[in-house]
Design a protein around this nucleic acid. Structure first.
Length: 643
RNA sequence: GCGCCCGUAGCUCAGCUGGAUAGAGUGUCGGCCUCCGAAGCCGAAGGUCGCAGGUUCAAAUCCUGCCGGGCGCACCA
């Protein structure tokens, strides 16, 4: 009803304006700041003042005169400088929201591939990775809600430099063989976290040692030899850990795609031949890129001003850069490569993954997307542009157009947190005061995702226990987890994508104010009211037909404001989906919860004698719960009924 | 050097395609648990919207130029 009444009013207004002034005007829709001003505002008269050369209020009067109102609209008034403000039928509007969801799938079901997480399989996941995974997961849920078919892929860079470095650590520093690496106890990803930063220092001590990285990288790419064996082992063990970490946050995937399979199945060779044939890349015969296959970017406006106008796709030693492999992968995602992976099911992890040779005959169909969204931090914008340029060069401008880079800013550590963890000395340079510290897997600087989860769960448990909730042990465990998940996911999604998050322990561990638990608490209260109503033998539900008949004047502005806020969640999801600004969903959820919590103290239900008034309040509460449950589901925030 | 992002209350941030008294959270101070759960609510204090121009009936919002901070421009990803 919300969107239909908006568009109907807009249409009638546009008609009226055309008849009156013979101009085509597309009326802007706004929401007035207060309910006493109205529910939908049209500043059309203000915009027309210049064209029509008349006082806005006068124009508004002329438009309003003879404007036929849709049945959902009670009245339209002129306000302020010349706003046309519509007031909706409140009982009817609320009844409508009781009967139907405020979210209507709009997409036609076309397939979207979302790539997210993509953590290098050589160390534990840290909170920066969590931002990626949480955003990717919420994006997938949002698009599904809007009617898209979504396939989530987690790309495993198991043949890259980062894995190579850990292999060097095991083999050349620690002198371990594959069996010994396999025998290292869990948490294996924590072990590698330390080893990886150790390798970095080891290389710095003697740059000659970098030849070991090079030869390891070669072996990883060819897939045979002791270094390749250890590489595979490391990648598999780490990925298993990452999946477990993500599962704690209810994040899962449809498919793991391995870079090694892109190489093993000659995906890159396929793409390479086409890149050469199309002239998109050429072999450099001189200069600093001598012996490399490069993609010239100088002519493209998008890449203007680069220090080096060429991007290396194949290194002089014959190995392929990440971008090269990613072009092949991107082609496959669109079904444009002309070949497919083999697939097998990873039983322990319960998900499909690509493979090179031992695939099974029966598997779901993967790839072949209409749209592709890559969730990757903003620092990789340059590389993502090159991937798009590659698609374009290969004659797929439409695929390039539908390749979206969902870029988000980094997670850094706040000064306080960095100091707590010992990354900054207490007597550090005063100039550094107040500056956040960038995390670095290479340097071993960061907060591990599992550590944060553990702390959140412990804190939640403490909070619950302090309240004497009389829960069984397993209920307490479950609830502590639910609250921790809510806190963490909300923390990651409430920030705008273009903002750097300065991660601060005290802020992340707060369950008050703008937090996930705040949302849960509002829902718990709403549910609790219904339990109490039931216990008193009162009705806990109002049928839409009854709600429609409730006296209009019982709707106070504040109660109606909550309903109107709930009516708009569909708009927010649409906007979040189209702009990739998922924080809008979090903000809207907060807005709902804040409004409800405020009403909660002003409009008691149990002790209200007037049956109709009680019903109006119950309707508002039900509409609120439904809307916030919808948003919580999309945000991946669990909704316990007690806490 | 070129490109992108940020600069709004002590701190962390909202503020949508210009529009109705610049809003939250947190912190500080003061209230509210014989009354549907105080992880909550109510109130107070707190802002030259980085600076300077410009466009406009109207600018935190658009344009230009500065200043301050961050990031990118690898044979790492």
């Amino acid at each position: 009803m919300w969107s239909s009444v908006k568009s109907e009013l807009t249409r009638r207004l546009a008609d009226r304006i055309r008849n009156l002034y013979e101009v085509d005007h597309d009326p802007v829709v706004e929401i007035p700041p207060r309910r006493d001003l109205g529910d939908i505002a049209f500043p059309a008269a203000l915009h027309l003042a210049r064209v029509v050369k008349r006082n806005p209020r006068q124009i508004a009067t002329e438009i309003l005169e003879g404007l036929e109102l849709p049945p959902e609209v009670r009245s339209v008034e002129i306000a302020g400088a010349g706003y046309l403000n519509a007031f909706l039928q409140r009982s009817a509007g609320a009844a409508h929201l009781l009967a139907e969801s405020a979210v209507a799938p709009s997409a036609a079901g076309s397939k979207t591939v979302i790539e997210h997480t993509n953590i290098n399989p050589n160390k534990a996941a840290h909170i920066g990775h969590l931002r990626n995974s949480v955003l990717g997961d919420i994006l997938a849920k949002t698009l599904r809600e809007l009617g898209h078919t979504v396939e989530v892929q987690n790309y495993i860079d198991d043949t890259g430099v980062q894995v190579a470095d850990v292999v060097v650590g095991f083999l050349d520093i620690q002198g371990l063989d594959a069996a010994a690496v396999a025998a290292i106890p869990e948490p294996f990803d924590y072990y590698c976290w330390d080893l990886y930063s150790q390798v970095g220092r080891w290389f710095e001590e003697d740059p000659e040692r970098l030849t070991l990285r090079r030869s390891t990288l070669h072996e990883l790419e060819s897939g045979s030899g002791p270094r390749a064996d250890i590489g595979r082992l490391v990648a598999r063990r780490i990925v298993a850990r990452h999946l477990k970490t993500m599962a704690r946050l209810d994040i899962s995937y449809d498919l793991l795609t391995h870079e090694s399979d892109i190489l093993g199945l000659d995906f890159f060779r396929q793409a390479f031949d086409r890149l050469v044939a199309s002239g998109a890349i050429h072999l450099e015969n001189s200069g600093k890129n001598e012996g490399c296959w490069v993609m010239p970017l100088a002519e493209s406006e998008e890449f203007a001003g680069l220090e080096d106008p060429d991007k290396v796709i194949v290194r002089s030693d014959g190995t392929v850069t990440y971008v090269g492999k990613d072009i092949a992968y991107q082609l496959w995602k669109f079904g444009l490569l002309g070949r497919d992976f083999e697939y097998r099911y990873w039983d322990e992890q319960e998900l499909w993954q690509t493979t090179t040779t031992d695939g099974v005959a029966k598997h779901p169909s993967f790839g072949g997307a209409h749209d592709v969204i890559n969730v990757i931090d903003i620092r990789q914008s340059y590389l993502q542009k090159i991937v798009r340029a590659g698609l374009e060069a290969l004659g797929h401008p439409e695929a390039a157009e539908r390749s979206v880079h969902f870029a988000y800013e980094m997670v850094a550590l706040s000064t306080d947190t960095a100091r707590q963890l010992g990354y900054i000395d207490d007597d550090a340079d005063p100039d550094e005061e107040g500056k956040s510290l960038e995390m670095s897997g290479r340097k071993g600087v960061g907060v591990k995702a599992d550590d944060l989860m553990d702390q959140l769960i412990a804190k939640a448990r403490e909070e619950i226990e302090s309240r004497d909730r009389e829960l069984a042990a397993d209920q307490l465990t479950q609830l502590a987890r639910d609250i921790a998940v809510a806190a963490l996911r909300f923390f990651m999604v409430k920030a705008s994508t273009h903002r750097i998050i300065a991660f601060d322990f005290s802020e992340a561990l707060s369950f008050e104010g703008e937090s996930g638990p705040y949302l849960q608490y509002a829902l718990v209260r709403a549910e609790n009211i219904r339990r109490k109503l039931a216990a008193s033998g009162l009705e806990t539900e109002v049928a839409p037909e009854i709600a429609r008949q409730l006296p209009e004047e019982l709707w106070s502005d504040d109660l109606w404001d909550l309903v109107l806020c709930a009516a708009q969640i569909g708009d927010t999801l649409e906007k979040a989906g189209s702009t990739l600004e998922l924080s809008l969903i979090a903000r809207h959820a907060l807005d709902l919860a804040q409004k409800f919590n405020a009403l909660y103290h002003r409009h008691p239900m149990l002790h209200e004698e007037n049956e109709d008034l009680r019903r109006v309040r119950l309707v508002a509460t039900r509409v609120f719960s439904k809307a916030l449950m919808d948003l919580a589901r999309i945000l991946g925030i669990p909704t316990p009924d007690r806490m």
